[in-house]
Design a protein around this nucleic acid. Sequence first.
DNA 1: AGAAGTAATGTAATATTATTACATATCATT
DNA 2: AATGATATGTAATAATATTACATTACTTCT
Lengths: 192, 192
Amino acid sequence: MNMQTRTPPSSLPDNSYGFSDRIQQQLDHAGRLCALQGGRMTAQRRDVLGLVLSATTPVGAYDLLEQLKTSGRKPAPPTIYRALDFLLEHGLIHRIERLSAFVPCTHLLHDHAHDHSHDHTDACLHSAQFLICRNCGGVTEIADAPRVLDVLKNICGKKNFTMQSASVEVEGLCEDCTHSTTGQKGHTPTPN
Amino acid sequence: MNMQTRTPPSSLPDNSYGFSDRIQQQLDHAGRLCALQGGRMTAQRRDVLGLVLSATTPVGAYDLLEQLKTSGRKPAPPTIYRALDFLLEHGLIHRIERLSAFVPCTHLLHDHAHDHSHDHTDACLHSAQFLICRNCGGVTEIADAPRVLDVLKNICGKKNFTMQSASVEVEGLCEDCTHSTTGQKGHTPTPN
DNA sequence: AGAAGTAATGTAATATTATTACATATCATT
DNA sequence: AATGATATGTAATAATATTACATTACTTCT
């Protein structure tokens, strides 16, 4: 292996990055979700997901690459892209096309008291809607808007188009940035 | 200048590429539209738009670059990106984020017997919806689906999000490709 | 027409994002 | 332990996009 990093050895599962308890819970939940789909949540993938979960705004692949380097690994682009592909395929993250960057699926971010795995899979796999703020860079997933997807399904039905995935990206100014006159990156986007 | 190309000098407006009559009409219409917005439709921009109009599937920036080289010019990337930016800003083309490629705005493709300029500007500027076929590469703009945009506006209203632009991209199989069992790129996408 | 200012284009270099191809290692099962 | 499948390492390169600065062309004003 190559685990002679500065991070102290831990009995917890693979916490090379000192992820917060909350994020570790999310990671555990993600692990369960992808196990259900027959996927293997390796340490590498877990770390990448953890980094995406830790960010307050979408993260680029090469950003992640840099961050991964601070651990004991020396990853190259394919490493990160493979991890991202895996996470995308299992609906754990989404790609924001307009930013070439990645965010966690919102379902991972909320409470996991009950088993919402079915909801998650149904709703998130390869489809998502986002509000992207041009000022603060914050991105909000609008998972509570099934209507959008319904309308799209309807249209596709009429046109005999077989929908496999869909993305909706709205760019503009979030509530906070709309009201701030400063024109500066005036606030921290509401964290995930 | 640099107009010693093989293309014979023409009395028609800048038809370096031998665009069809239909495309020239569309180009003329586009010229009128962007004049209304105070834009200058130069020969370069016209040629780029013509090439986008001529393609049956979305075209990448570097594809266009190659094609432009066959004329008397020796363009570099900024040339093409500037032209594309101009055309985007004036709602004459759209960018398909998932493909990093460009298509003409559907409003240019249909008949221009009457003045739909207002419709065009309202509807196309910075917002569009697409069905993207993974098999044949064809892309259909669904301009007849204001409902999608309405739903989005509604959501943004509730969240106090100021929408500046929106894109909806649905990926899957078009009607023809859904029905063809071949698994091959079995047909030419319905032309623009 | 000539001068001045603005808008557009040319050019070289480089940044950013993503993939290919092939070697090695790890895991799960027998 | 041997096998096959899955995952990761590594080097090279492809594809997409931007920066910074020089030059040219258009427009307007006198």
